[in-house]
């Protein structure tokens, strides 16, 4: 009478689509936008290697409304990636001890996000300045 007959309940197959896991899935997929942008650059490199005519076609694509709309979407997704990336950052670090106390994760996230905003802004300003 004492034997154990445990019942195993499987996890639902769509757990990733349901709260609270939905935000995690969105975060992961925002990282795919990073690769899609990498693909846009890779296509440019292929066109460049094929010669001026191919390159002109690539620049034509970049100027098309389709491409502009795509890049607006990519920008939104990558900004989401930046925000969530630095929310995750404190989890991957050892505890930061300053004056005998652990620095709160929110503070690390805030400072790192500010830093990322500054590096991106600096790159845009440098390119705008150099190409003037």
């Amino acid at each position: 009478m004492n034997e154990s007959r445990p019942y195993r309940r499987p996890q639902p197959g769509n757990w990733w689509a349901k709260p609270p896991y939905r935000a995690y899935t969105a975060r992961e997929l925002s990282g795919v936008a990073v690769a899609i942008y990498g693909g846009v650059l890779f296509a440019g490199l292929v066109s460049l290697a094929r010669g001026p005519e191919n390159w002109a076609g690539y620049v034509g694509f970049l100027k098309s409304p389709t491409s502009l709309a795509l890049h607006v979407l990519l920008l939104a997704a990558v900004v989401y990636h930046v925000i969530t990336w630095f929310q995750t950052l404190p989890k991957t670090m050892p505890k930061l001890i300053v004056n005998g106390e652990a620095v709160p994760a929110k503070k690390i996230t805030g400072l790192a996000t500010l830093l990322a905003g500054a590096t991106s802004l600096a790159l845009v300003l440098v390119v705008l300045g150099v190409t003037r």
Binding site: V34, L68, H71, L75, A116, S120, L123, V124, V127
Partner: peptide, 15 residues
């Protein structure tokens, strides 16, 4: 991509 991604997309894709 977190440090430079938004800037790169803005420069090569929009500006």
């Amino acid at each position: 991509s977190a440090l430079f991604g938004p800037a790169l997309i803005l420069i090569t894709g929009l500006l």
